[in-house]
């Protein structure tokens, strides 16, 4: 009986923690969402009660000075392309490293390098990339941005996909080999359909990373290929910070990621938990 009561107490404490954590996460988002519908004066005076207006959105979307939709398109092209490339390369690389006869030192070395690479902040590479990309005329191009995002996100993709690939029983590869499959046929006909869930989860995460990147985009793009995070930052000008438009831009920019999370959440959770329980 006392055991049950103590469990109940523990449950309440954990609930409290969860709600506090949710509040910490949700409050800034709520603040931005509210700011998007406020006039500049309401934002500056931090008034809690205000009359909602759509002027921030109108200026963001219809103003001649605003390139928000163009930037949104840039973000979409870069995020979708780099995500597709990362998922495909990481799935094939994981298959090769884990299921083909690659020397162990090589596969372990590559995974360790990928982990190390992922631990370094992107800013570390940006100056080098800027120099290289300038030489190759890749600055302010989709190719350059896609290449940079693929490079920065590939280690994460490799680690995620390798976990999903480990879930595919070895017997299936062997059965496929006996049934007459080459390695390529085994990958495309057997492995790919079975790791679909993992690919969706990986794609959702990589898309979000690419979509929200600021550091790389700020340094490697200009007006033509500027992405949404950079676009939002341009509202903070030298003499005026357009908080309302920044908030409206931020709110709109979260929509694709939010939709993706709602759609991909079960895959992400399933994916991140895979292997932890049978």
């Amino acid at each position: 009986m006392s055991h049950t009561r103590s469990n109940h107490g523990f449950y309440r404490v954990t609930q409290l923690f969860v709600w506090c954590y949710a509040l910490i996460i949700l409050f800034p988002f709520l603040w931005i969402a509210m700011a998007a519908f406020k006039r500049q004066i309401d934002i500056l005076t931090s008034s809690f009660f205000f009359t909602p207006v759509l002027s921030n959105f109108e200026e963001l979307i219809f103003s001649k000075q605003s390139s928000f939709f163009h930037d949104l398109l840039n973000s979409g092209i870069i995020a979708i392309s780099s995500t597709a490339i990362v998922v495909l390369i990481s799935a094939m690389a994981s298959f090769t490293l884990l299921r083909m006869y690659v020397p162990r030192w090589l596969s372990v070395g590559l995974f360790a390098w990928a982990m190390l690479f992922h631990m370094l902040p992107p800013i570390t590479f940006v100056s080098a990339w800027f120099t290289i990309f300038s030489e190759l005329n890749l600055i302010n191009t989709y190719s350059g941005m896609i290449l940079a995002h693929v490079t920065i996100n590939l280690p994460m993709g490799l680690w995620l996909m390798s976990n999903f690939l480990k879930e595919v029983p070895r017997d299936l590869y062997e059965a496929a080999a006996i049934d007459g499959c080459s390695n390529a046929a085994t990958f495309f006909r057997i492995v790919l359909p079975l790791i679909r869930t993992g690919m969706i989860a990986t794609a959702a995460l990589i898309f979000i990373f690419s979509w929200s990147d600021f550091t790389i985009a700020l340094n490697l793009t200009a007006k033509a290929t500027q992405t949404v995070p950079v676009s939002i930052a341009t509202f903070a000008q030298e003499f005026e910070i357009k908080y309302g438009q920044m908030a409206a831009g931020s709110l709109l920019s979260t929509l694709p990621a939010l939709l993706l999370i709602v759609f991909g959440q079960r895959y992400i959770v399933k994916g991140l938990l895979s292997g932890s329980v049978k």
Binding site: P169, D171, E174, A175, A177, I178, D179, G180, C181, I190
Partner: peptide
Amino acid sequence: HARDRDIAMVFQSYALY
């Protein structure tokens, strides 16, 4: 290679796709 030996195998786990 296994695929060219013209053998068929039934696995313990059945290994159905």
